[in-house]
Amino acid sequence: MVVIIKNLTKEYSRGGRVFKAVDSACLTLTPGDFISIIGKSGSGKSTLLNMIAGLTVPTSGSVTFDDNELFSLSDTEISNYRNLKIGYVPQGQSLLSKLTVLENVLLPYHMAEKSGDGAETAEKLLEKVGIAHLSGSYPKHLSGGEMKRAAIARALINSPELLLVDEPTGDLDAQTTDDVLSLIKSAAGSGTAVLMVTHDTDAVSYSNRQYEMRSGKLLESAK
């Protein structure tokens, strides 16, 4: 698997003025990579991840996934790509409130028309992220850290080749932050490429390549 991001640019206009939320970003991801991107709020980190996930259409530039140019795919193809090849842990709370934790984790599995009910895989993942005892609970009864773990388990259910993580540690205490980051690192260790964006400088140390985002520009930082 290889993901090549070339001159990716996204323009938005605010108050009649056009500005580049992401400006000519270039990046290549291969299996086992754990790349972190640090940047201030508003520097364009989430916008970049959303383009890589095919959720936001770039103004210019390209994202190719194993020779497939993402934005020339049909909605069905790009949705399948997102479902099967990508695990996305979005910023903030993203569990569906009417589903239990287990059902939330199973959601991408059942979208894929895969055989079997996936419950065993899901329960194993919940155990791995340390919230097996909460599988039957509803999100409103979970803490922020527990929800983040559930979202990570959900992102991993279809064994993705690329894991996109947006601000995983925003509102977590030191111990939980460490647990969550270790989890992500272990995903990278098992061959999945990980791209994590954060503004937490401590989180960066878990990754093996670091970038910095500044006003839409993506710069590799020397270690």
């Binding site: 909605d75 949705s79 399948n80 479902n83 979005p90 991408p108």
Partner: peptide
């Protein structure tokens, strides 16, 4: 909206 956005993000097609 947020609920549907999450579905899209997990790989649901527009049709779905």
């Amino acid at each position: 909206k947020r609920e549907f956005a999450v579905l899209r993000l997990l790989g649901a097609t527009r049709k779905r």
